[in-house]
């Protein structure tokens, strides 16, 4: 099969179906642009959520009357719990210091003994900062005989989890809808091209063209639709980013991942969606376009 000939035929398809091609590329580029924007929002939302989760403190309060060695042993046991990255020891004296710093008052002014318990502040592994994992850590920590109580902001964590999950589903749904729209658009345009070229296809079959030879120009045409849509979407995103988002991104404390790889991803995604659209369309409509001739005696 001559690649040059196939490629030329694909480009000819662009020209023959100019209006449909322009509309498809434009709409695919809008769909990809929206996909790009949603991806950025999703990544940023994920980062914000991670930041909030990163600040999630899990405090383990120890019982009164333990020796320093028991405190040290408890620290080791806590560190051994799966999901705990580190355990920072806060002695009764250190706790009093913190209390004084935060509230400006000294327990000695009111009480004879230091009522603040010694504790450990747990640092949790990134993958374990969610309601279920922290609840499991809490359960395990409470099983240690020297531990009095384990405290964390349970309600806030559950809320973050719920919101993050809902947001993930929403963005996934929107992403699927946009992706499918792009595929359907390309498939429809390829279908129009197939109908417009059905006589050529029939002649191709007559003179001995293989199925692959007939299909390839349509596959490439669909791929080019997606590729062009991806390039336009990247350009639009680049312009929007440079003029509207970049100047305010620092104020919004956003880390927007718009770089060359992201543009490349968008172009690649466009090509992939175009390819899927054309392959789906060819299988179905090429047969339909030819079947209309088959029953003529």
């Amino acid at each position: 099969m001559s690649f040059t000939y196939t490629f030329k035929e694909s480009l000819a398809g662009f020209k023959r179906n100019r209006a449909a091609t322009v509309i498809t590329i434009f709409t695919v580029s809008i769909a990809l642009l929206l996909l790009g924007v949603f991806t950025i929002i999703t990544i940023n939302f994920g980062q914000v959520v991670d930041q909030i989760r990163g600040r999630m403190d899990v405090e383990v309060f120890l019982k009164e009357g333990l020796t320093l060695d028991q405190h040290r042993q408890t620290g080791l046991q806590l560190k051994a719990i799966r999901g705990v990255e580190d355990a920072t020891y806060i002695s009764k004296e250190k706790a009093a210091e913190i209390f004084h710093k935060e509230f400006g008052e000294n327990y000695g002014d009111m009480l004879d003994v230091n009522p603040l318990p010694a504790s450990f502040q747990l640092k949790i592994h990134e993958g374990y900062i969610n309601a279920d994992s922290i609840a499991a850590i809490q359960k395990k920590a409470l099983r240690i005989k020297t531990v009095d109580d384990v405290v964390y902001r349970k309600a806030l964590l559950a809320l973050i989890d719920r919101r993050a999950q809902a947001f993930s589903y929403a963005t996934l749904f929107i992403g699927i809808v946009l992706g499918l729209s792009a595929i359907i658009l390309v498939a429809n345009t390829i279908r129009l091209t197939i109908y417009a070229k059905r006589e050529i296809i029939r002649t191709m079959k007559l003179v001995g063209a293989t199925s692959m030879f007939i299909r390839m120009p349509f596959v490439i045409e669909g791929l080019l639709h997606g590729l062009a849509g991806g390039i336009i979407a990247s350009a639009l995103l680049g312009v929007s980013y440079a003029f509207f988002i970049a100047p305010i991104s620092e104020d919004l404390l956003l880390n927007i991942p718009v770089n060359f790889s992201f543009y490349l991803f968008l172009v690649g995604l466009g090509a992939l969606l175009g390819l899927i659209g054309s392959v789906l369309s060819i299988g179905r409509f090429l047969r339909e376009a030819l079947v209309t001739h088959a029953y003529r005696i």
Partner: peptide, 8 residues
């Protein structure tokens, strides 16, 4: 030529 192109 079309008939020959399709045969590669």
């Amino acid at each position: 030529a079309f008939a020959l192109h399709v045969t590669g």
